[in-house]
Design a binder for these strands. Sequence first.
DNA 1: GTCGTAATGGCACTGCAGTGTCATAAACCT
DNA 2: AGGTTTATGACACTGCAGTGCCATTACGAC
Lengths: 224, 224
Amino acid sequence: MSTTNSNRYSHTGLQEGRGNQKLRTRRALLVTAAELIASGRRPTVAEVADAAHVSRRTAYRYFPTQLKLMAEAALEGLRPTMEGTLESAPKGTTVGAIEARIDALVEQMQRLALSNENLLRTMIHETVLHPPGNTRPSRGTRRIEWIEAATQPLRARLGAAAHARLVSALSLTMGIEALLVLRDIRGLSAAQAVQISHWMARALLKQSLAERQAEQRRSRSKPA
Amino acid sequence: MSTTNSNRYSHTGLQEGRGNQKLRTRRALLVTAAELIASGRRPTVAEVADAAHVSRRTAYRYFPTQLKLMAEAALEGLRPTMEGTLESAPKGTTVGAIEARIDALVEQMQRLALSNENLLRTMIHETVLHPPGNTRPSRGTRRIEWIEAATQPLRARLGAAAHARLVSALSLTMGIEALLVLRDIRGLSAAQAVQISHWMARALLKQSLAERQAEQRRSRSKPA
DNA sequence: GTCGTAATGGCACTGCAGTGTCATAAACCT
DNA sequence: AGGTTTATGACACTGCAGTGCCATTACGAC
């Protein structure tokens, strides 16, 4: 997953051995797999290896199972679209600014999920099993980080517990799972599903603020 | 199981030909598969067939792919727990009664999802792929029917559109997908996840009612 | 250049999904 | 009893996942 390099290797020599060769092979496999998945196919390991001009045996050296290859390839396919999502969000700590950030986040997440549906469905397919009591990488926490970043000023206003609760609730309103339920089970169109996500996110935010107000009113009228 | 008894079935005669024999074989495969899945395994078709005392070839005659066997077996495994969920819910059309029904529904759904996690994860694994533009059975609509039944009186109070929106939103707050996100991604415990579902459902209900009130106030003060 | 070693490729193997073909046994009918 | 139909079983096959073993290439150090 996290390629722990990002520093130059030519003058430092920190990249011991033939590290770059490995990185190139690994990356070739990932982008090739991502392309094949995004095109709607469900490629075999042999197909990915061939398309990446790598032997099947080598592919298995980098990704011990097709599952891991697919899961990482899905992430790889998303990476380009992901960056720049948060930067463009409005700043500020007012409720209005927070609401705007949440709106933008929902919009971006659902747009991303829609345009990478095959990739994300594959990822769920690959990660949904065996999770009883294991220590799997499971799924990333990017969604949580984004939501926390967008709602960060609310932590002081709502308190840690209520803020954490809001973050949890918001994590259900966006992402591929929401799309999955709204479309596959509820039978909505993509546009309708996105609307629901927007409404839910705002509703949960408003409700969190309203509960906080009620709590304050209560403690003012009858201080402990 | 494979009671090859000689109990005659001819007194009804409704089942044309050897229909009962087929039903028994089919059911034996389903319950056997459900048991194996529920026990945490991911059984081979050969394993299911063996355990059901049926030849592998016959298993494939009833379920053309392992996927279909698993998906139907998951439903089979849930059937016993499902019935009696709605009957015990409180009646009435007051907001309080509706709130109580939603609470009970959330509680039941999440309890069901938790105690059949393996089954449901398998079902998602099997149904999440290929659904772009196809006519798959996909997933059932029981969840939607339950939510609609619980919130039915709100349709008159909120209007059809707002009620449909609430139903959609509530469908995201309960079920295996919610549990999946809250636990696998958000990292909550089972108990915490259920709490979030409860809070969300109530919050969305309150917000729907609040928006309706605001709308009415607006139209009273400035009638069109 | 030479040498050592790390990355890669080739090949053969096992295990399971899925299918086709034919044989067998049980049910049905007369 | 007979004969016919039908579910089932036995066997062999293909395709892909995954692995072990060994050969070959190519990088890097001397």
